[in-house]
Design a protein around this nucleic acid. Structure first.
Lengths: 338, 338
DNA sequence: TGCAGCAGTGACACCGGTGTTAGCTCCCAT
DNA sequence: ATGGGAGCTAACACCGGTGTCACTGCTGCA
């Protein structure tokens, strides 16, 4: 009768053709256990024949929840954001969930309002927060207030395992610096990230930990701060290399700044790694493509994102999965023995 | 009476409290013109007081269309993908649309089925296709078949302006090569992209155009093909630099391969740009961070993505906007006069 | 004065699913 | 034979919006 037009088949079409009520069709879709096998098969045949796919909007309305998970970020590292997107996708593949992305501007005064509007308008199932905005407690509170479940990805483990998936930057940096020490370096410079970033603080602590363990004193002359950009990396490099007792190795808190340090070294006629060893952090695309390729620390970003997504959509399963991850040191060619 | 629980206020709450029918509230929301000013104000006051926001799922169901636009991509260039995401966002900001992303694997035999499942399940308003999969005609057909509007982003202008937003790679490359010629280079090598990529073909044609215009003959000895990766760039660079008459400049069809060429040159003890000028394409993050910073061609990717999004959600407005864009040459430090 | 026409509003069905409840059938124990 | 429960299904309300159409006043015009 009325089946054509342009419309996709609905549950009513299936019910009518299969000669059952729509509720029964609904039971088939939802794999209800109290359902006669013969009925199920009959209905499934009709579903297959019609190519029926349930309407997600109708489902969302009836269930009072949808199947969209949001990714809110203001992340300068494209590689990382895409890694996260892929990690999430691998978690929701073969489910009915979809991924909605929302870049924001953390420096905008309207950022919170933007996010609020977004969350109120879309009524997402849950959201994921990426660093650096995942460090913003106001955002987390906003989610609580609006009743949106959320998970933060970050660089330090909090008590709050329910809402957090974290790497352990402090330990990772400590290991990277220990790696330098293990290769005979004693004078190791440090380029810190900008104040106010949790990751920056953590990485700084890792540096201190490693030196302390090795019994090496901190020397402010070979420590500088940048704001995670190439240019500030150059400036920091220039400062450290101007120290009266020049460092033989430098750990930079991210790859861009490491690339800047490399640039500064080259400008001064130093060769890397012969005259200066460098380690970065993040394993962005730059790291592999500059010369020499940069030894760096890599977040297991996809695995973390996947874990975070699972935490959102399936808390039961999530309880069995890890909430914190240790990063790997990627050895390339920017480090040589002292 | 019943307002609390956890539920957000609905149109019924607004209607009841304002003492009008829900249809009238609906009219207020949708800015219907046949509506008494006093009524509108009364209803708007209640909406503001309650903080009412319409439920998008219910709207989607009633309207038989939702407000989700999809981004389907399998793009190795993270920078570009994020640029696109931001371009789309700038187009849908302050609308009720949201962006759903779906990375796919173009090499997987299930790719088409994956996309089909995705589109059938989510019933998106429309989708955007990014290169390289935007070159896949089967995908476009699939969209037609499923009645999903779509826009492709690409590197060549098709007749089909309705479904296409394009850069003009051929012209852009031609200009880049002409730029080299203008600096006195006569022996200009070329690293092509992989066969089967529209962008690769176009860029190759641009190279030919420029040489032809300048009356320079093609020389297969200084032309090579790579597949857009760093490693194949190295191989191509080695081949070109081994030519009996060595090129003084090389155009590589993307930045990664240009970085590879740079690497090959350095390995052979050549300095850039003194001994060899290099131009890349894409302006990825690498381009700015390798040494020397790479002169390259940049797609106006955000503008294109924005135009594409507008084309999707507002065809009327789109007709007035451009459907094709010319890329810019970004001058950095990898080119010197011959 | 009568009536067509229009602005403004409400009642009601409907979009396509799910939850609830009642009812039917069949089987087994009594 | 009969009551009662398990197993399965249908009927119906409901989720929160929008479309259709009818109705009420009021205005303008014959």
């Amino acid at each position: 009768m009325k089946k054509a037009k342009d419309g996709k088949p609905t549950i009513n079409d299936v019910a009518r053709i299969a000669g059952v009520s729509k509720k029964t069709v609904s039971r088939v879709i939802n794999r209800s256990p109290l359902l006669n096998e013969a009925t199920r098969e009959k209905v499934e045949a009709v579903i297959a024949e019609l190519g029926y796919v349930p309407n997600p909007q109708a489902r969302a309305l009836a269930l009072r929840r949808n199947f969209l998970i949001g990714l809110i970020h203001d992340n300068p590292n494209a590689q990382m954001v895409l890694g996260v997107q892929e990690g999430i996708l691998s978690a929701i593949r073969d489910t009915e969930f979809a991924l909605v992305v929302r870049p924001v501007n953390r420096r905008s005064p309207d950022m919170l309002d933007d996010v609020r509007t977004f969350l109120e308008q879309q009524r997402l199932f849950g959201v994921m927060l990426l660093p650096p905005i995942s460090e913003n407690d106001d955002l987390a509170e906003l989610c609580e207030e609006l009743g949106v479940t959320y998970v933060r990805m970050g660089s330090v483990r909090l008590d709050d395992d329910e809402h957090m998936v974290a790497s352990n930057d402090r330990e990772a940096v400590s290991q990277a610096v220990a790696y330098l020490i293990g290769r005979g370096h004693k004078r190791i410079g440090f380029v810190a990230g900008p104040e106010g970033f949790r990751s920056a603080t953590e990485r700084g602590m890792g540096y201190r930990d490693a030196l302390e363990r090795a019994g090496i004193a901190l020397d402010p002359a070979i420590m500088a701060e940048g704001n995670y950009t190439f240019e500030t990396g150059i400036a920091a490099g220039e400062k450290l290399l101007a120290a009266s007792l020049r460092p033989t190795a430098i750990f930079a808190s991210n790859d861009e700044m490491a690339a800047g340090v490399l640039h500064a070294a080259r400008t001064q006629g130093l060769s890397v790694p012969e005259d200066l060893s460098i380690i970065g952090f993040d394993d962005t695309a730059i790291a592999a493509h500059i010369w020499p390729p940069l030894t760096t620390v890599r977040w297991p970003i996809q695995a973390m994102a996947k874990a975070a997504a699972i935490k959102l959509i399936d808390p039961a399963q999530a309880r069995k999965a890890p909430s914190h991850f240790l990063s790997d040191l990627i050895e390339r060619a920017s480090v040589a023995p002292a």
